[in-house]
Design a protein around this nucleic acid. Structure first.
Length: 586
DNA sequence: GCCGTTTTCGGCCCGACTGTTTTCAGTCG
């Protein structure tokens, strides 16, 4: 995603928030938010579309007016509506709006009647006690605001999946052991496999909802209880994120699972579809729509279906849609493919040893790959320019290749490839000359330095690597690190097209700090008919466990197993590498 | 502000919990 997309998405999101605070029509607010989401999901650089307004308006959620604003921004660098809103709404209120528990109505009240314009003035008003006279501002509400501000400053906005998943699994395991528990699993964005998680959502059914909820609220690591009911509980964890538990009746488990897994736009789309077919969908089930306002389950009406997610999709004339696809990115319009699964992966093609910055010897790395059921492992240590990672000089690489071939000769049951993770230098040249690269079985070329260069340079740099006949895989193509650095912002459609043409695989680096390529990029590769590699970039045994995050990301990009080279048998990988090198398969 | 297998106008998803309220507004997911 290009910078323009991200900047425009932020502007539209801010406009939505400011509109909300001026009391604008709520559907107008929602429309602005939808445009922001559409821009974030768009793999193409939106700046390239402004000469063709029809294509811009063809994007779901973007209409005539938003298209005009986007064009205005690309041409002039600003949006008049945004500037005008800034004249009315203090910018600092956007930060206040992010405090959990404070919605638009309350922030508007704090602003108009409490003189709050930003976080510091809110803090000052809280300290001075001037807010207590405002309507609906009791002692408890004010205390909750104080606690939320404190939590916000300690916790990051979102937690990466690699940190959230183990916490969620521990909670699920703890609750599963409680007497009376029938079912329990995590839902929400974690079940959908998003790269970052807002808070942990856990769903359960139990013969003792009260007891289960009490265990949840008194678990180790619970710092504060926010909500304490028998069907809904909400807590803050010392680990810096919020966890919610919902306990529902076993007969409605599927409806609840569907509902709490989301995404919200997916749910909205499902409900609209339900209405068109004469139904009404909520977290208790799919009900006949009888026009009554009171929820059907409160009137003793039995749902048409509710026990499983699949039964609800079926009634809505849809195939079962796997959670990673539930993002309202066309999954209702197009039948989803058979997605790649963790069990399909049988090759690790990017891993490090003690020769560079890994923690395992060649022997131990190979043994670990074999133990995990792989039948191909590529040893790809860093190249000479990666000094911080103890990259190999030409001579050290030659020695290393020989050592890898020795281990390969002594090992049964797994094919061991001698490779390298070669730096793509700033100008697109590679870190070893072609003669040396030709001695390798496999080459992963990755950018490590100069990760802030502009789009044009980044595109040329990566394009050179993709087109190089001795490069098989481009590793973590953008170099982003989630929450720390944005990485390169190349012209993705150009790279994807070139990779498909040259039969070069683009990597999804499975490390949960990277997940690079990201989901929308994978989707672009899939649509272009290109190849994806999913590698863990292992530096130690535990890194192999990160594979699932890469697979989730790939699933979110609609990837099938056949387009992922890591699912291929050793002979197929060998033939692919050999064809590219124009030599007989090893 | 967006959208259309009823529609170019008139809709636009649904329910639980909290806090401050005597019947409900606001927030969240």
């Amino acid at each position: 995603m290009a910078t323009t997309n991200a900047e425009l998405a932020r502007l539209f999101r801010d406009m939505a928030a400011m509109l909300e605070l001026t009391g604008a029509n709520r559907f107008r607010v929602i429309a602005h938010d939808r445009v922001a989401q559409a821009l974030k999901d768009l793999p193409d650089d939106v700046a390239k579309l402004v000469d063709d307004p029809a294509r811009l308006e063809g994007i779901e959620g973007i209409g005539t007016k938003s298209a005009k604003k986007i064009i205005e921004y690309v041409r002039t660098g600003k949006i008049t509506e945004y500037e005008e809103l800034l004249d009315v709404v203090p910018e600092g209120l956007l930060e206040v709006r992010r405090i959990p528990g404070l919605g638009p109505k309350t922030v508007k009240l704090l602003w108009e009647q409490g003189g709050v314009t930003d976080l510091p003035s809110l803090q000052a008003a809280l300290d001075a006690g001037t807010l207590e006279s405002l309507p609906r501002m009791g002692a408890k509400t004010l205390e909750n605001i104080r606690a939320s501000i404190g939590f916000m400053s300690r916790a990051g906005r979102r937690t990466r999946i690699g940190k959230a998943m183990p916490i969620a699994e521990a909670i699920v395991e703890r609750l599963r052991a409680v007497p009376g528990t029938e079912r329990v699993e995590f839902t929400g964005s974690l079940r959908r496999g998003r790269e970052t998680i807002g808070d942990l959502d856990v769903l359960a059914s139990s013969t003792d909802p009260h007891g289960l909820s009490e265990v949840f609220r008194s678990m180790d690591g619970v710092e504060q209880i926010l909500v304490a009911g028998d069907t809904k509980s909400s807590v803050r964890l010392a680990a810096g994120l919020q966890a919610d538990l919902r306990v529902v009746d076993a007969t409605a488990y599927g409806a609840a699972l569907l509902y709490f897994t989301g995404s919200k736009p997916h749910n909205v789309a499902l409900r609209e579809r339900a209405i068109k077919r004469g139904y009404r969908l909520n977290e208790y089930g799919l009900f006949p729509d009888d026009g009554e306002e009171t929820p059907p389950q409160q009137r003793g009406i039995a749902p048409v279906v509710s026990a499983t997610e699949a039964s609800i999709y079926e009634k809505l004339e849809l195939p079962y849609i796997p959670p990673p696809l539930r993002e309202d990115r066309g999954e209702l319009a197009e039948p989803p493919p058979e997605l790649i699964d963790v069990g399909d992966v049988r090759a690790e093609l990017h891993a490090h040893t003690i020769a560079s910055d890994g923690r395992l010897t060649i022997e131990l790395l190979v043994a670990e790959a074999k133990r995990r059921g792989y039948d191909t492992i590529a040893i790809t240590d860093h190249s000479r320019s990666s000094v911080q990672a103890n990259g190999l000089s030409d001579d050290r690489l030659r020695t290393h290749i020989a050592a890898v071939r020795d281990v390969a000769a002594q090992t049964d049951g797994i094919r061991v490839l001698a490779g390298s993770e070669v730096d793509i230098l700033t100008d697109g040249r590679l870190d070893y000359d072609d003669e040396l690269l030709a001695e390798l079985d496999i080459v992963v070329a990755s950018p490590h330095a100069a990760l802030t260069q502009d789009t044009e340079k980044a595109t040329r740099r990566l394009l050179a690597a993709i087109e190089h006949p001795l490069v098989d895989i481009v590793g973590h193509p953008t170099g982003r690190v989630i929450g720390r650095r944005g990485g390169l912002e190349p012209d993705l459609p150009t790279l994807v097209a070139a990779a498909a043409e040259h039969d070069t695989a683009l990597e999804v680096n499975a490390n949960s700090r990277r997940l690079d390529l990201r989901d929308t990029h994978v989707r672009a590769v899939v649509e272009a008919g290109g190849l994806i590699a999913i590698n863990t970039d292992a530096h130690g045994v535990e890194d192999f466990d990160q594979l699932r995050y890469g697979v989730l990301t790939a699933q979110r990009g609609w990837l099938t197993a056949d387009r992922c080279i890591n699912t291929w048998a050793p002979e197929a990988i060998g033939a692919w590498l050999a064809r590219r090198r124009g030599v007989a398969a090893r």
